[in-house]
Computed example of a mutant assay.
Amino acid sequence: MRSYSFLSFTIRMVLLTSVGFLASCSDHASSEKSAMNEEPINEEIRYETIRVTASRPVSSLNLPGELESYYETDLYPRVSSYVKALHVDIGDQVRKGQVLVELEAPELTANLTEAYSKVKAAEAVFGASKATFLRVLRTSRTAGAISPVDLETSRTKAISDSLAVVAANAHYSSVQQLVSYLKITAPFAGVITDRRLSPGAFVGPGGQNGVPILKIKQLDRLRLRIAVPEAYLGDIRRGGTVKFSVRSFPNQTFAGHINRIANSVRPETRSELVEIDFENKGGRLKPGMFASAQLPVSASGEGSVYVPKSAVISTMDRTFVLKIDNGKAVRTTVQKGDEAVGQTQIFGDLKPGDIILKTASEDIDDGATVKTQLVN
């Protein structure tokens, strides 16, 4: 009897424990489900906005440019000839007037000898006719000794022979000039940067006349050419100092002076060409190097506003920014001006203090409600 009562008590305890465990599990699951329903995930997108400013973003412009030799030229032959000797090669420093190339043309040498002989022959003929005219002139002083016709004939012959001497000398000088072209000299002091031909090559008309024999560049003086946007042309002054850097010397800054201004705006780029002179002492910088020039400009920008380039969208129909008005994105038509340092100058129904999207998107409809956050 006692064993039966003990068994019944044990069964009742097991059942109560199981029911309590199941009830707790059900309550835990119900609480998790209610928590998920009461705390929904916030998936709303917030767009970054900025406040439009009226001043130029920087007080100096970073403009790309290229270093060029102050003087550089290709050396071509001026007469048909053969390359006899090359006295210089790539990298050689040369002085003004130094003989760089010797050419040979036997026919020119023969022509020079022939022209010289014609000069001497003409001088001899003129000497004889002149002497004859002087004798006739002296004889004519005796009345009836020489007829006037003979005197005039003698005089005319002497004049004609003197002109023949002038013509012969002119021909000789022209041939002599051609012969002088057989020696190519340096037009200025510099360095040889290229050599295309070798001794024995035929050059001149009918030969390799399209290929220069040598290329020479001046290294001790360079010019840096930059294109300045139209909006900043009022800040350009002749003689102004401009600093620039090159990739070969990243930790150094070089300085030059504005020496030439084109005084003409290129319509395709709306910019003006400016040249900066640089005394290249030691020849550290080389022609052809790309440079980044810092051009000082005024920090004020009256009458215009500047926004990031990402805020402006250009389509086939128009160019616009997305202005935020009472929580709505309004497509506002603008016109683009100068672009520099990630900023774009714009004109339109926009004023300093207006709020626009920092990164505009065509996916946002005109008048769409957007959530925003100001980042500046």
Rank of each mutant, 00 (worst) to 15 (best):
S3W: 06
Y4D: 10
V14I: 15
V14D: 02
L15E: 04
T17K: 01
S24V: 14
S31M: 15
E32M: 13
A35G: 04
N37P: 00
N37A: 15
P40G: 08
N42I: 10
E43W: 08
R46D: 04
R56F: 04
P57N: 10
G65T: 07
T73V: 15
S80I: 02
Y82G: 06
A85E: 14
A85C: 05
G91R: 10
Q93L: 12
R95I: 09
K96E: 15
V99Q: 08
L100I: 08
L103I: 06
P106V: 01
L108W: 04
A110S: 13
L112R: 08
E123V: 10
A124I: 09
F126Q: 06
G127C: 07
A128T: 13
K130R: 13
T132G: 06
V136P: 00
V136F: 11
T139L: 15
A145K: 10
I146Y: 04
S160E: 12
V165E: 02
S173Q: 15
V175L: 08
V175D: 02
Q176Y: 11
I192K: 01
I192N: 00
D194H: 11
G210A: 14
L214R: 06
K215Y: 05
D220K: 07
L222W: 03
L224S: 04
E230H: 09
Y232Q: 04
I236G: 01
G240R: 01
Q252F: 05
F254E: 00
G256S: 09
H257M: 05
R260V: 13
N263M: 12
N263T: 08
N263S: 13
E275F: 11
N280F: 03
G282T: 08
K286M: 13
K286T: 11
P287N: 10
P287S: 15
P287D: 10
F290S: 12
A291E: 02
S298L: 06
V312P: 01
I313H: 01
N326Q: 13
K336R: 13
D349H: 08
P352K: 02
G353D: 04
I355F: 02
I356D: 00
D363W: 09
I364F: 05
G367P: 03
G367H: 04
A368N: 10
V375W: 05
N376V: 03
